[in-house]
Amino acid sequence: MNDFSTAFGTAFSLMINLDSALVEIVGLSLHVSLTAVLFAALIGLPVGAAMALFRFPGRSIISVILSALMGLPPVVVGLFVYLLLSRAGPFGVLGLLFSPTAMIIAQTLLVTPIIAALTRQVIEDLWNEYEDQLRSLGAGPARALPTLLWDGRFSLITTILAGFGRASGEVGAVMIVGGNIDHVTRVMTTSIALEVSKGDLALALGLGIILIFLSIGVSGTAFLVRRMAEQRHG
């Protein structure tokens, strides 16, 4: 019990004093996850919208791949990226393994299917509602695509937040492709795992508390966005 209270005390003082190790780890976490979510949104939004609006060859294959990827545990995605980036792998010459870039790639792979699948749902629903009207005004699916992305903006923001939640909370993929190297690839989740196994609870707790706040922040933002959408658009 005593151990615990000291750990909590130390954790808070680390946070309040903006301990440099802690700040570095949180900074890298945010950098990796936000970049991954940015790329995932750049790929997932148009892909999801296209799947909702167009019939094209390979559409069902992409659909199957996306839903398979969506359910994959992060460690498996990590393993897959590891194999691609390792010295013997097809992209080994790039020397990316155990770098933040490798972690961004892995998390992008993790998050893209989620954003694509949710986007597809949002855009499909909107298209069902708008199709007659938009066609009547002379807009086919291609012209409708940007329109629907804009009109679905509130739901899509929630979608992107869900993606960020998955990225910032996962440990398996970044552990495997990043290697949890101090000052290089150590992020919040991997250092929690490490510190706990070393028996050093203070840093782990500090990071854990920050992750909880982050998670509350994400769902709080999602909530506010939804409420704003309801107020503005009924």
Binding site: E129, Y130, D132, Q133, S136, L137, G138, T147, D151, H233
Partner: peptide, 18 residues
């Protein structure tokens, strides 16, 4: 396109963009 733009329709349930 010309034919489409010469017509307009008001639907049974109005469809309004957000």
């Amino acid at each position: 396109d010309y034919i489409t733009h010469r017509q307009a329709m008001v639907f049974q349930r109005p469809v309004m963009l957000r």
